[in-house]
Design a binder for these strands. Structure first.
Length: 556
RNA sequence: GGCCGCGUGCCAGAGUGGUCUAAUGGGGCGGAUUGCAAAUCCGUUUAUCGUCGGUUCGAAUCCGACCGCGGCCUCCA
């Protein structure tokens, strides 16, 4: 195996795998485009969040080496936004208007309560967009923590790591004003229906990330661009920074009247505020006044030349255009001394989309899973995490129930090693060192998690009795993979049986188990097997244990 | 129409010029164990790498054409 001495990552900006070299290896700045909280995040969303999480973990691991610097320690300032501003919903009015997504989500919540999908005791005002966003944001954080998303766990202590767009609108206004002052944005329309647009022609680098340079963008193709909305623009690709709309469900005050921000600007503001400028002493909480200092910093912060503002920026592959392209334009024009040639982030990290059972995931196909659905069925968070990270982040991985089961078994196997306490000897120490090297080599190679896992399993096959050294090695590995540290779902026990997650004690089951116990005691195996078949028909699998109690789980 | 990516066994998924006669996990098969199962453990099995052509001493790996799938160009992880 070729020795790869430092981390190389695929950079979407340059379309090549290159050494990852942060501006300051002691403090790496990383921004991830987070969820829009108008619905529960699905496993596809989590796959890309988790890919970013593995990257963050590896950067912080002692196993990771970066070109030109020592082994660490390194801190990764990882920021992930929560988009709780509704924005538009209709395709044909992509720059504004349409039904607010939060309003739509509110209606959906009302329907879900009616149909019993959401417990009726959940107190939530479906007509209040902030309440709706808060509801889904909370659920997102729960799922994220279950899956070991470090940024969500860290945000419990420092909420500024997961800023919410709705709290940053004044900051966005500051940045939009800056863009207007620097000649990169302009106000169109008359009072009452003003709009502020970013002028794509004012930024020479537009199109560098996606390849969609201005000469290649098609104008108004397919009748999707609303002529009225286009009228005020200087160039068809100019995008919205602010839309005046005093009647919109979510609105804020601005120099351009009451309205709402465009959907690209929040990421420029929050990433620079938290990662590039650094934290303020006031973690963001509920109170807006505490943030005023930060708005001040946004007014004056300037990066020399065309230097990158942050080290890393991640998102799903669909984010590359237009979202990230627009972020680059806005951020460089607002904060770089010389915007032309600016790239915003040194390296752009995009995860490809997840497929489900070989098909594109979509609600209409009914193959749309959320982590909480799967947890409710008894699937362990550790298994789901492993299943979502085990394929290379730049392939269209295929999520299958079979794969999830595979992952669950792998987790169990690894757990045995991790819990070993037998004292180590020279041999295990060398053996453990070998796997750490192989694991690190694979991870250095553009986060080849599949290969890294292969190395771990091959190593496992050589272990007859795991030692404490082996346990230590797998713990170090798991700091990167984040699988074994996941808490297990709770099972419920009765006198007769242990009910696995996803099942619960029920008189009908208990009765059958009691009858089966009696039959077995009488050595009437025919009767006991019949009962097992009955339970199987009901969807339960049972397993006898040495203690005499029966493990009940969902039939696979 | 433009730009971009992918196509490896029954499944998932590594491998991007030479022990690849293709890693690893699952499945299958055989055995241990079990009243029987399940789980676990041990052993074993399965691919010539979408198709065709080219480059090379040598290709899954590079080049070309074709077929198939997908992404972006429009909200979307």
């Amino acid at each position: 195996m070729a020795l790869i001495p430092h981390l190389k990552l695929y950079n979407s900006l340059t379309r090549s795998v290159e050494p990852f070299v942060p501006a300051d290896a002691g403090r790496i700045t990383f921004y991830s485009c987070g969820p829009t909280v108008y619905d529960d995040a699905h496993i596809g969303n989590f796959r890309s969040f988790l890919a970013a999480d593995v990257l963050k973990r590896f950067l912080q691991s002692p196993l990771c080496q970066l070109e030109g610097t020592g082994p660490g320690p390194r801190t990764v300032v990882h920021v992930m936004n929560i988009t709780d501003v509704g924005h538009m919903t209709e395709d044909d009015v992509a720059d504004g208007g349409g039904e607010d997504k939060m309003a739509l989500a509110g209606r959906r919540i009302a329907e879900a309560k009616k149909s019993g999908k959401i417990p009726a005791n959940v107190q939530i005002d479906a007509t209040d967009p902030y309440a709706v966003a808060g509801f889904y944001a909370q659920r997102f954080l729960e799922d994220a923590r279950q899956l070991g998303l470090l940024v969500a766990i860290e945000a419990q202590k420092d909420a500024s790591l997961m800023p919410r767009a709705s709290a940053f609108v004044p900051g966005m206004v500051v940045v939009i004003e800056r863009l207007i002052a620097r000649g990169n944005a302009y106000v169109a329309g008359s009072t009452g229906q003003r709009a502020v647009y970013f002028s794509v022609q004012s930024f020479a680098g537009y199109g560098k990330l996606s390849g969609n340079t201005l000469d290649k963008l098609r104008e108004g193709e397919g009748g999707r661009v609303n002529a009225a909305d286009q009228a005020g623009k200087r160039h068809p690709a100019d995008f919205l920074l602010w839309k005046e709309d005093p009647r919109h469900i979510m609105k804020w005050e601005s120099p351009w009247g009451w309205g709402y921000p465009g959907w690209h600007i929040e990421c420029s503001v929050m990433s620079v505020w938290r990662a590039a400028i650094g934290r303020t002493d006031t973690p963001i909480g509920e109170s807006l006044p505490a943030l005023e200092q930060a708005w001040g910093a946004l007014t004056s912060f300037t990066k020399p030349g065309s230097q990158a503002l942050i080290d890393l920026h991640s998102g799903g592959e669909d984010n590359a255009f237009p979202h990230h392209e627009c972020e680059i334009a806005q951020s460089c024009c607002a904060f770089n001394q010389t915007p032309a040639g600016g790239v915003f982030a040194r390296s752009w990290f995009h995860a490809r989309h997840l497929f489900v059972e070989g098909e594109k995931m979509s609600k209409s196909r009914g193959n749309f899973f959320t982590p909480r659905d799967l947890f409710a069925q008894g699937h362990e968070p550790a298994a789901l995490r492993l299943e979502l990270i085990r394929a290379h982040y730049r392939t269209n991985a295929n999520f299958t129930m079979q794969g999830l089961a595979d992952s669950a078994r792998m987790v169990e196997r690894w757990r045995k090693i991790a819990s070993a306490t037998t004292p180590g000897t020279t041999a295990p120490k060398a053996r453990a060192q070998d796997v750490l090297t192989a694991f690190a080599d694979a991870m250095h190679d553009d986060l080849n998690v599949a290969k890294a896992i292969g190395a771990v399993n091959a190593w496992l096959n050589t272990i007859a009795t795991p030692s404490a050294d082996d346990a230590e090695a797998i713990r170090l590995i798991d700091q990167v993979l984040g699988v074994l540290e996941r808490p297990r779902l709770a099972s419920q026990g009765t006198e007769l049986a242990e009910y696995a997650p996803g099942t619960e004690p029920h008189p009908a089951i208990e009765g059958r188990l009691q009858a089966r116990k009696a039959a077995r005691a009488a050595k009437d195996f025919k009767a006991s097997d019949t009962i097992r078949d009955e339970l199987a028909a009901l969807g339960y699998a049972i397993k006898d244990t040495p203690s005499g109690r029966v493990e009940v789980s969902r039939k696979k």
